[in-house]
Design a protein around this nucleic acid. Structure first.
Length: 197
DNA sequence: CCCTGATTCGC
DNA sequence: GCGAATCAGG
């Protein structure tokens, strides 16, 4: 494989978008992440910050502050035998294109309808919900083909439209979703009951 | 173990 | 210039 102008452009674009070298390598194909990194350096754009000019640093760190205090994490629901099934069912379900992306206030919770046990909105904890909203901004928006054992398989958008992709962020070890989505996918029965109207 | 980017250095 | 091997780190 050679670095054609087109490939270099893709590299530049993805790199500036914050994609990782491995992600870019997969996208391009025929190259390893090392090749990508090497190229990135040769192109002298290792400093993936400055977009072009403006870019006030001062980005503290914390991206997900939602962390009250008592982290009661491991509520692995008994019944919730981690669904080993992949979100294969992408069969377009004739549905009215529901604008799920341009979130406004409501329907932020993704998913068309088939896949994971979509909890009702009012059954999702506010924290988890907020977390998901946040995460979906950073989602890699990968396609079905790009799902791997370790990428979040949470579907976002409407399978019947082009506004459909998978979260793609790193999944929790042994789980099919990333941390945020695990939060809405696996919830203690009690919590759900308490929240349910 | 999974992943990240950084660097080296033979080709 | 290229990128595998390696390093350093999360």
């Amino acid at each position: 494989m050679t670095w054609t102008d087109e490939r270099v452009e893709t590299l530049k674009r993805m790199w500036s978008e914050g994609q990782s070298a491995s992600q870019i390598a997969k996208e391009l194909g025929g190259v390893t992440r090392n090749a990508v990194i090497g190229k990135v350096h040769r192109l002298g754009l290792s400093n993936r910050v400055a977009g072009t000019s403006a870019e006030t640093e001062a980005e503290p760190e914390v991206v997900a502050p939602p962390d009250p205090e008592p982290r009661r994490e491991p509520p692995e629901p008994v019944h919730a035998a981690a669904p080993p099934h992949e979100p294969e069912p992408v069969r377009a379900a004739a549905a009215a294109p529901a604008p799920v992306v341009p979130i406004t206030r409501k329907a932020i919770i993704p998913a068309g309808q088939p896949l994971p046990p979509q909890p009702a909105l009012n059954e999702i904890s506010p924290e988890a919900l907020a977390s998901v909203r946040e995460v979906e901004k950073r989602a890699r928006k990968i396609t079905l083909m790009e799902l791997t054992e370790r990428t979040c398989k949470w579907p976002i958008g409407d399978p019947a439209t082009d506004d459909f992709w998978f979260c793609g962020l790193p999944s929790q070890p042994g789980k099919p979703y990333c941390e945020a989505h695990v939060g809405v996918a696996f919830q203690p029965m009690s919590a759900r009951r308490d929240r349910r109207r």
